[in-house]
């Protein structure tokens, strides 16, 4: 017997965690990912009901959700690029033009950048294709 409730609970948890991420994080890319995760939770919900009812309507709807999520991702990334180009930052707090004119900027209350950043490394892409010209010259000189 398939327990519908289990899947619904997992879907709910994913949705809520996505929502929390959307609310708290400030990186535009993380925000987008959080929204996608909320969609995951909803999709899981649909699929579970589809299985429960033994018909395809839930799955069909999930297919549409996938479509919309793809559209959303495309446009969101284009937007993120544009916004990044304007401010050289992915901080969503910089985009608060809708605020009332006379209230304080939300930036002022936040603590400063950590002075000693943790030694964290970004994953590096391994260089591919032909090596740049200057490397050759170096090699040649050596």
């Amino acid at each position: 017997m398939i327990v519908l409730t289990n899947y619904l609970i997992v879907g709910c948890i994913l949705f809520v965690l996505g929502a929390i991420g959307f609310l708290t994080r400030r990186n535009l890319i993380t925000l987008m990912l959080s929204a996608e995760m909320m969609l995951h939770g909803v999709s899981l919900n649909f699929v579970a009901f589809s299985n429960f009812h033994q018909n395809m309507q839930g799955q069909t709807f999930t297919a549409f959700i996938l479509t919309v999520a793809a559209c959303e991702a495309g446009i969101a990334l284009a937007l993120i690029l544009t916004l990044y180009k304007r401010t050289k930052s992915l901080d969503v707090s910089l985009w608060s033009q809708l605020s009332e004119a006379d209230i304080d900027s939300p930036h002022e209350e936040e603590p400063a950048v950590p002075t000693t950043p943790p030694a964290q490394k970004f994953p590096q892409l391994t260089p591919a294709g032909r090596a740049p010209q200057f490397q050759k010259e170096t090699v040649h000189r050596v």
């Binding site: 400030r26 901080d91 969503v92 400063a112 950048v113 950590p114 970004f122």
Partner: peptide, 16 residues
């Protein structure tokens, strides 16, 4: 983008 920006304030501080 993130590598360009480096370690940023907004990634280290979530809001509320």
């Amino acid at each position: 983008l993130a590598q360009q920006a480096g370690i940023t304030n907004y990634d280290q501080n979530s809001r509320q």
